[in-house]
C-alpha cells in the first residue's frame, strides 16, 4: 500500500510540476538564455551520437531486411521498410532512449545535487520558483530539439540503409532506386506522427528527469540512485507510451 501511494505521489508530483512550469510560460522570454543553453547541451551536443547510432540502425535494418526479403524476391521493398520503420518507430524511440541516457541522466544528476547541496532551497528562499528557473527551460529546450534530432536521425538512418544497399553484394540496390523506394509510401502524416511521438517522449523524459532530481533527499549516494531511477523510469515510459501513442495515432 505504501509503495502504491509513493507511486501516485511521484506521478502527482510530476503532473503538478509540469502544470506549475507551464503556468509560467508567459515568462518564457526571461528564461530564453537558459533555454538556449539547455538546447545546446541537450540537443546540439547529442548530434554526434544520434548521427552514429542512427546510421547503424538504418544500416542493420537494411541488412536484416535484405536477408529476409531476398528469399521472396522483394529486395526492392527494402527502402520502403527502412524508411517506414525509421519514421514511424525506430527514429523517435531510439532518439528518446539516447536523450534519456545522455541528457535526462545529466539533468537528474544536476538537479539532485542542487537539491542535496541546498541550492534549490536557496532558490526558494529567494522566492525564485524552481519550476521557472530549473524546469521550464529544460522542458522548452526538449520540445525544441527533440523533433530536430529525430528528423536528423531519420535522415541519417536512411543514408545508412542506402550505403548497405549499395555496397553489400547480395542486395545491390543503387541509391537512387533505394530512395525512390523510401519515398514511395512515405506521407507527411506518417512523418508528423513520428515527430509527435518524439515531442511527447522528449517532454516526458525531461519531466521524469526533473521530477526525480528535485525529489532527491539525502547525500551523494542518493544522487546516484536518482540518476538510475530517472533512466529506468524514462525507458519504461518511452516503451509503454510508444504503444499507446501508436494506437492513438493509428500508426
Amino acid at each position: 500500500m505504501n509503495r502504491i501511494s509513493t507511486i501516485f505521489d511521484w506521478l502527482g508530483g510530476a503532473v503538478v510540476m509540469a502544470f506549475r512550469a507551464f503556468r509560467m510560460l508567459p515568462e518564457a522570454p526571461r528564461i530564453m538564455k537558459r533555454t538556449i543553453e539547455q538546447a545546446l547541451h541537450g540537443g546540439y551536443l547529442s548530434l554526434p551520437i544520434v548521427s552514429i547510432l542512427s546510421f547503424f540502425i538504418g544500416a542493420v535494418l537494411a541488412l536484416q531486411a535484405g536477408y529476409a526479403l531476398q528469399d521472396f524476391g522483394a529486395k526492392q521493398l527494402i527502402g520502403t521498410l527502412v524508411g517506414e520503420a525509421l519514421v514511424r518507430e525506430l527514429g523517435p524511440v531510439f532518439v528518446a532512449i539516447l536523450v534519456a541516457g545522455r541528457v535526462a541522466s545529466a539533468v537528474t544528476a544536476e538537479l539532485a545535487s542542487m537539491r542535496v547541496y541546498q541550492e534549490v532551497d536557496a532558490l526558494v528562499t529567494m522566492n525564485i520558483p524552481p519550476e521557472r528557473f530549473l524546469v521550464l527551460p529544460r522542458l522548452l529546450a526538449a520540445l525544441c530539439y527533440m523533433p530536430v534530432l529525430t528528423m536528423i536521425g531519420i535522415i541519417i538512418g536512411w543514408i545508412g540503409g542506402a550505403v548497405v544497399c549499395n555496397y553489400v553484394d547480395f542486395i545491390g540496390i543503387a541509391p537512387a532506386e533505394y530512395f525512390q523506394s523510401v519515398k514511395q509510401y512515405l506521407t507527411t502524416t506518417k512523418l508528423l506522427h513520428g515527430l509527435i511521438k518524439a515531442e511527447i517522449f522528449g517532454f516526458v523524459v525531461i519531466l521524469i528527469a526533473c521530477n526525480t532530481g528535485l525529489r532527491t533527499r539525502g547525500g551523494p549516494r542518493e544522487i546516484g540512485f536518482a540518476v538510475t531511477d530517472s533512466v529506468v523510469y524514462s525507458l519504461m515510459a518511452i516503451l509503454s507510451l510508444d504503444f499507446f501513442i501508436t494506437k492513438a495515432l493509428g500508426g
Binding site: 547541496y117 541546498q118 541550492e119 532551497d121 536557496a122 528562499t125 529567494m126 522566492n127 520558483p129
Partner: peptide, 21 residues
Amino acid sequence: DPDTRDRFAIALVFQAGALFN
C-alpha cells in the same frame, strides 16, 4: 507563502553557502 517572501525579503545563509556552482 511566496507572498510573505515577496513582502519581507527573507534571506537564509546556508551552512555550506548553497552558492550556485
